[in-house]
Amino acid sequence: MHPAPSIILFTVLSGLGFGLLFWLGLGFPPVTGFSAFAFFTIAYLLAIGGLISSTFHLGNPQRALKAFTQWQTSWLSREAWLSVFALTFMGLYAIGAVFFATRIAPLGWIGSALALATVYATSMIYGQLKTVPRWNQPTTPALFLMLSLAGGALLAGQVTYALILITLSGVLQGAVWYLGDTRFAKSGTTMETATGLGTIGKVTAFEPPHTGNNYLLKEMVHVVGRKHSQKLRIIAITLMAILPIILLLLPFSHTLGALAALSHLAGVLTSRWLFFAEAEHVIGLYYGKREST
């Protein structure tokens, strides 16, 4: 799939923002007054900034409100609702904490649950697509949630939780790559089933329908070289997990904490780029374009 910068930024930033809101809602750290204001501002900027950047890839963003209507079937629509609910509940909770120095705990709990539910809905937009076998597995929501929780803990200054969650997300990321590499083959979709010509013999693409490029190829047939992606995987896991873990294990200082957060962010951005770039859509079969097999 085409790794569109607007979607990569959206999923990473809003994931981080909602992750931070999750921790704030539970009272980690139990901030009030000015420091609460600072924390909530960062969380809202990330969450809303991400959501806004997601509208950059729309063909007709002026009609974006219509995306609230189909929550019964569409995960994108559910995400829209959940994000509004999460931001509303957390907003009320934040007003209490910032201006009245009171944290209304139940509001925070509901807000935290909604923040996670929003991240889940985002991940399911990709996870439910049967057409992209690499995404179509439970590890997709698991990794999105884990990264959101880990990044949120890091930003909320929860060093112990951050250490545990970053380690877990590193392991999960490894598993996701390992399992993902065989998903396409296991899906059973091949050029033979795509064309129905398998009963005659081995099918190869002879001539594409068009000599130039088109929307389908630009959007859904993006092939990264294997060597290239191996290198990027190593970069991603180092920046996302290994480096932050080392930095957090060193005697605590704010500079090291900030470095850990930046490194983690860069790592997650790389991982998310790979998430899109490595994902092969079954449409590629009609064009005879599959990197492996």
Binding site: R63, A67, S74, I125, L129, N214, E219, M220
Partner: peptide, 17 residues
């Protein structure tokens, strides 16, 4: 239609542009 492109992602046949 807001042009989000999700339907084209969901179609296995490349029938939407």
């Amino acid at each position: 239609c807001i042009g989000c492109g999700l339907c084209a992602w969901a179609c296995p046949y490349g029938a939407r542009e």
